[in-house]
Design a protein around this nucleic acid. Sequence first.
DNA 1: CTTTGACGGAACCAACAGTTTCGGCAATAA
DNA 2: TTATTGCCGAAACTGTTGGTTCCGTCAAAG
Lengths: 198, 198
Amino acid sequence: MSPREPVEARPHTGRRRNPAVRRAVLDCAADLLAGPDGMAVSIDAIARAAGVSKHTIYRWWPSKGAVLLEAMIERAQQEVTIPDTGALATDLEAFLADTFRAVEQVAHLLRGLMAEALRDTAAAEGMREFIAARRDELRGLLVRGLARGELPAETDLELTIDQIYGLMWYRLLIVRSPLTTETAVHLSRTVARPGTPP
Amino acid sequence: MSPREPVEARPHTGRRRNPAVRRAVLDCAADLLAGPDGMAVSIDAIARAAGVSKHTIYRWWPSKGAVLLEAMIERAQQEVTIPDTGALATDLEAFLADTFRAVEQVAHLLRGLMAEALRDTAAAEGMREFIAARRDELRGLLVRGLARGELPAETDLELTIDQIYGLMWYRLLIVRSPLTTETAVHLSRTVARPGTPP
DNA sequence: CTTTGACGGAACCAACAGTTTCGGCAATAA
DNA sequence: TTATTGCCGAAACTGTTGGTTCCGTCAAAG
């Protein structure tokens, strides 16, 4: 996924990859997906929109899913801060508000990616990694709250995480209702109710 | 969707529809989707498995999504009782346990249907109807609890429903962890905590 | 027996994912 | 400058899919 720098003996000769091509492909993929007919975006369409040959796309990405995944990761991973204010309620609220805002901006991308992941095993695998990473962030936040006694000691963390991200994906994919800051506030209140201190 | 009986002036002449064809198509569609390669089930494959011509399938269903939707509805709608024991906790628990059990049995169908709905507007519309009906059932259950003061008066019902079905779909589509009776118990406890009586 | 209409078979189309071939051109090492 | 490496576009190609169309057959009813 990450374009690691290969440790080559030879310092690299020949023509270099054109960064503008990469940008054009990722941007056009995202734009097309956000368009009126965003459900069905073909590689041909992306290539045409980006002024790039299909050949070039397949030189750098193994599949359509990989293109969408990279476009999404690039846009989503940029700014979701992981707060640590010392209180679970405020941490969670900030984290969710931030996440929801980021997610709303790549909603089309996520829907297209999910459609791909439901058919292509490779795309599904890439998704799973991304999702696992997001779960880890949220779990860390909850664990701190749990340690401070801000959650009942017997809280099932995985279930809680499932509930939070479940609501997010459900609204994103199925009912398509918006994820607002109010949702974040409301959700963090229903989830993180004070428990019995240890 | 429902095969309504047309009010024809002429009492119907000619050869009748073979019910065995319908059964074979729906059953084979479900079976293929549950198979090892369930992500990609083509109309051709369904026709081949059912010993039926593609022509016949398209005579009775407008699209692949319609076939899957009908197969799913037929299997899912059969036995999810809506309990009314007088107490929200037990109602919810029974309803969710029942729902989860039914859903687990058509999990493959639901995933295939969702994949279709993310691409095809018509399939998405069919899904929305089905989902709205399920939401109505759950809402009725919660409203009764709310009226009895078993939920805080200020409870946001839609959010609560989103949380419940959100968890369900999230596990079904994304993390693919099982929906057990324990999940139902656990979930109904975290959602339906006693509120301030009116 | 005639009409209506369900059904199978097969050919057909357009769109798509993905691959391959070719020829040109840009960057680097010599 | 020149040879080499390798990026890039154009376009043809394969195989699969959803969906349509035509034809011939066969079953049910009047």
